[in-house]
Design a protein around this nucleic acid. Structure first.
Lengths: 264, 264
DNA sequence: GAGTGGTCTAGACCACTGC
DNA sequence: CAGTGGTCTAGACCACTCG
């Protein structure tokens, strides 16, 4: 029999269960207090009440607000910090993670030079148009066939050399209309762009990699021979609540670069 | 100025600093108590005192042994658990992680079918011989050129179909001599093999992926056309103390399978 | 029921940041 | 200096496992 108390899902509970972990039990769903706190914090993030880059209230304030001990709030934030949703900075506070943070850049771009250090990446938008979702895109983005989408084609250069050609599919329902001008005018990563222009934050992604022969168009863009091996990287990106909000296929020329992955 | 106490690096400290966090400070190196505890636990693992699959002492016993609070031991174990070094099981104890654990299997094999569920993998050792390290292998494994190594070639099948051909390089200095018979007689993953037969535990790995054309030998083994694109996966595996103990290059046929990666 | 990990609290103090 | 996150303790109780 469970005894851990369930806190009330109030926006700003002023009073709450008890100091010690007693209280009314047998709620329909059970989870430790710190996970309930985490859920409440997630709601705040999802609702946009706390925006990327901003500080959230201090641990002690949250503890008071939720009528729990600071350690419990701390454990909730610990998990969210491990999931790259929040960033702690000692002496300053806890902040909502942002793709503007340079440290977050290589979290979603695993391409590194075969030899030597890091290089400057440059994104060059090629085309951008609206279309209707085909069966594959619809399936990956949990849309209906025919739903409006934006398609972006862009080239990624490292040290001035073309390395990746991407085709990116974005649901019209949440992105509205994306234009080539918007993309060209923005300086920063695509995910920074999504975050600041559309308020859409990518939390995690799944990638599926294969080796494929270069088609003619991609071969030209990447300066490789048609039919030569390219690394195909298909990615679905998810926002809060595991909602898929982007699908893309990238073709990587791996002559001078490779996809780097760390297995923990 | 730091005030946190440094515990004595004794094998089994019976008495220690103080109940509260006062004590002699200004040690040459500073780190929180729980990290020092973690280091001590790591030593035990590395020394083989606690073997994979075995239970380590309970949190309260460790707390007593190290004269710290249970919460501090807990935090050390938390981190090691997050790093897949230890596994907690509520009500039973904390255990040394093992590659025999089926849950650990897909941690180092990111290959999944393009369609549908999971399949049974089968490893077929092809060849095994001793050689001297060339420049590339020596560099990756931090050996000297000419040092003895074992080379294993093996085929990986999924549902009876060949999908991966691997060439695996193992330092002779720590593996001694590996033979085809040993490999054939063992049932389980290669890392289980290393763990139980050589006492070598792979902790983490780095992989570098590229797309390459199939050479003739690999093409035949994988039943694909010579020159067709294959996914090249080079991996360096590390044991305790970030010591590189395995280098391998795998060629993956990605017609019906893909390399799956989750970006957190 | 004894033993283990898991949760929660309350309070103390340390380390860092910025005013 | 005040305020923030970071560490540590001591003690209580909960949930799970097994004999």
């Amino acid at each position: 029999m469970e005894k851990y108390v369930q806190i009330r899902p109030m926006p700003d509970p002023t009073v709450s269960p008890k100091g010690t972990s007693q209280g009314a039990a047998s709620s329909p769903t059970f989870s430790p207090l710190y996970r309930q706190i985490k859920s409440l914090l997630l709601q705040r993030l999802e609702s946009g009440e706390w925006r990327p880059g901003e500080a959230i209230p201090s641990e002690s304030e949250l503890a008071t607000r939720f009528s729990v001990s600071q350690g419990t709030v701390r454990k909730a934030i610990d998990e969210m910090s491990a999931e790259n949703l929040l960033v702690r900075r000692q002496g300053k506070g806890t902040f909502v993670a942002s793709h503007d943070d340079p440290r977050a850049f290589f979290r979603f771009l695993r391409l590194v030079p075969l030899t030597g250090g890091i290089e400057q990446a440059q994104s060059i938008p090629l085309e951008c148009w609206r279309a209707k979702a085909g069966p594959e895109v619809a399936r990956m983005l949990e849309l209906n066939i025919g739903d409006p989408i934006n398609i972006v084609r862009r080239l990624l250069q490292f040290a001035g050399k073309p390395v990746v050609v991407d085709e990116i599919y974005l649901p019209g329902a949440i992105f509205g209309t994306v234009t080539l001008e918007m993309l060209r005018d923005f300086h920063g990563s695509l995910y920074s762009f999504f975050e600041s222009k559309f308020g859409i934050r990518m939390i995690r992604a799944e990638e599926r990699l294969r080796a494929v022969p270069a088609d003619r168009a991609s071969a030209e863009l990447l300066h490789v021979a048609e039919g030569s091996p390219l690394l195909s990287v298909e990615r679905v990106s998810f926002s809060y609540g595991d909602k898929p909000v982007e699908w893309r296929r990238g073709l990587y020329a791996t002559n001078e670069h490779c996809y780097f992955n760390e297995l923990g």
